[in-house]
């Protein structure tokens, strides 16, 4: 499996005089977990924001390819269209749940587009025609499936803001999955989790990859997660790619060690050996 689900080519993002991303190219391969790592301020979240349409990259091309061969140029699409048509879903570094709505409602909002069609754009459902109820039941079943995966079924009717932090992280991933994505982008999913919770998270992500066949792109600082589950790691620093390969390769790459420890490359080489 070497075909790329997402191809990032020569992407540059400037904020005024600041070059946040500088000519970055990498691939995220289909059916694999790709990790994007780098020191603080390296531009990882900016890459995410460009992929999901929250920023428009200054230059470069982002191509999303589905299994059926249809391609989407993400840099030309609005953010909500990227989720809807190109089927890229994301989570946020600082969790963005609908806190005053229940866990189940959060998962139903994620299925908005599907349900909107089913409700004939509200008009059908308000007049009671078009079988909206059946579609809503299906949506609840999908939500229940992901609640089971996240271990949150018992809390389905509680407000999302009442959940403990680790559960909120899991709920955000479940919510993103309810949009029916092909590529799931996770921005620091393990931040603030204890070791047990981060193990649970690993299992959940591997399940998403193996059982659902969804490709994952994740930003993470927790090396336990990154090294444990990634198939492929891209390292960036100051907006440039400095390394790209499998976990074993990255672990011993002097450039990566230099970037993380803040030492010269020659010294890092000695450290690695």
């Amino acid at each position: 499996m070497t075909d790329a689900i997402l191809k990032v080519e020569h992407m540059t993002m400037r904020f005024g005089g600041l070059v946040a991303i500088d000519d970055l190219s990498f691939d995220a391969r289909r059916g694999e977990i790709t990790a994007l790592i780098g020191p603080n301020g390296a531009g990882k979240t900016t890459v995410f924001n460009c992929i999901t349409g929250f920023y428009k990259p200054t230059a470069g091309m982002l191509t999303m390819t589905h299994e059926d061969g249809s391609t989407f140029l993400l840099e030309r699409m609005d953010d909500f269209r990227i989720t809807r048509h190109a089927r890229v879903a994301r989570t946020f570094q600082n969790i963005r749940l609908f806190g005053g709505m229940t866990v189940l409602e959060n998962l139903l909002v994620a299925q908005h587009n599907k349900l909107m069609l089913a409700s004939k754009f509200t008009i059908g459902a308000i007049l009671g025609i078009g079988g909206y109820r059946g579609h809503e039941k299906e949506a609840v079943e999908l939500a229940r499936f992901w609640l089971d995966k996240a271990g949150l079924t018992a809390r389905a009717d509680d407000p999302a803001a009442d959940l403990p932090y680790g559960d909120q992280r899991k709920l955000e991933i479940a919510r993103a999955m309810c949009t029916g994505p092909k590529l799931l982008c996770l921005d620091e999913p393990a931040a603030g989790l204890n070791p047990k919770e981060s193990d649970d998270l690993n299992k959940m992500l591997l399940g998403i990859r193996d059982e659902q066949g969804i490709s994952i792109l994740l930003i993470e600082h927790d090396m336990n997660v990154v090294m444990g589950i990634s198939d492929h790691i891209v390292v960036i620093d100051y907006g440039k790619k400095i390394s790209d390969g499998d976990p074993a390769f990255i672990r011993s790459d002097p450039k990566v060690i230099a970037a993380y420890l803040g030492v010269d490359e020659s010294e890092a080489g000695e450290l690695a050996s």
Binding site: F80, R81, I82, T83, A89, F92, N113, T179
Partner: peptide, 8 residues
């Protein structure tokens, strides 16, 4: 923002 990320 979360709404937009969910394709709404």
């Amino acid at each position: 923002i979360a709404c937009r990320a969910l394709g709404i």
